[in-house]
Amino acid sequence: MRAWRPAVPGIAEVFHARIVDYAYPLHVHDTWTVLIVDDGAIAYDLDRRSCGASLGTVAVLPPGVVHNGKPAPGTAAGFRKRNLYLEPSFLPAALVGPAVDRTTVDDPALRAALAALHDALAAGVGPLDAEARLALIGERIAGHLAPRTAAARRPESPVADRLRDLLDARLTDPLPLREAAALLDRSVPHLVRSFTRRHGLSPHAYVLGRRVEAARTRLLAGARPADVAVELGFHDQAHLTRHFRRHTSTTPGRYARGRP
């Protein structure tokens, strides 16, 4: 078992576990539970309805609804799962009922996106990247639970440029996309789509690139790599080195030593 709370708006907990010969009792969560199975299968009762989840599906359990869980019949080795526990406000309250009725979602693209997000969270990806991934996942889940009543808003270049200005102003401490969405009166998925369409890369990739450019300037001015990492908001020097090498093909130390 592994459980942690990343610094990502909307995520209350990440939970990875292998369950063998154990049954969860009836219980409720205050959060939305979005679950994928990596091995075996799960049987669970949700609001007194028999349900299940297996390798190719996504299970969405709403907050406040009684459920349990156990290895499905015929899975003697149990199951391996990855859960996201998401804040109650992550999806509209109006989707609780549809989630009870359609708790299992068969969507390979959604399942792949969730697996990629879990991998990224386990690797310690930055919160800006995780927040963008999560927003697009939430939009896709909502689309399964309720029919769309209106076409999605087309990407907007002016909004993308305004988001870029906000990111530039907060280069060392990026503005959470949820906060940027409130400032710009747009949804997070719309901001991500608009920015990517306009600038050709995600907000997270843009911020990393700008930080590396700033690091180059500081290194050529004689700053120590360790100090540059702290100043520009990288986790540590190793984090700076990983992204610096990816952008420049060399390490910060070698780059700095190349000064005449």
Rank of each mutant, 00 (worst) to 15 (best):
3 A>G: 10
3 A>E: 13
3 A>S: 13
5 R>V: 08
5 R>M: 02
9 P>T: 07
10 G>P: 02
22 Y>N: 05
22 Y>W: 10
26 L>T: 11
26 L>P: 01
29 H>V: 03
32 W>K: 04
32 W>M: 03
38 D>M: 01
43 A>E: 15
49 R>E: 12
53 A>T: 13
54 S>R: 14
59 A>K: 01
62 P>I: 10
64 G>H: 12
67 H>Q: 10
68 N>S: 14
68 N>D: 15
71 P>I: 11
77 A>D: 12
77 A>K: 08
81 K>L: 11
88 P>L: 08
92 P>S: 10
95 L>G: 03
95 L>D: 06
98 P>E: 09
99 A>V: 06
102 R>C: 02
105 V>C: 01
108 P>K: 08
110 L>D: 08
111 R>S: 05
111 R>D: 04
117 L>P: 00
117 L>E: 00
120 A>Y: 00
122 A>S: 11
124 G>S: 07
128 L>S: 08
128 L>A: 07
134 L>C: 10
135 A>W: 10
146 A>L: 12
147 P>E: 12
152 A>T: 08
159 V>Y: 02
159 V>F: 02
163 L>I: 07
165 D>F: 01
170 R>N: 15
173 D>F: 03
175 L>C: 09
178 R>V: 14
179 E>F: 01
188 V>C: 03
189 P>R: 08
191 L>K: 06
192 V>S: 09
192 V>F: 02
193 R>S: 12
195 F>C: 01
195 F>N: 03
196 T>G: 03
201 L>E: 14
201 L>T: 08
206 Y>D: 03
209 G>R: 15
211 R>A: 03
212 V>E: 04
222 G>D: 12
225 P>T: 06
228 V>L: 04
229 A>K: 05
237 Q>A: 12
249 S>C: 09
251 T>I: 09
254 R>H: 14
255 Y>L: 10
260 P>R: 14
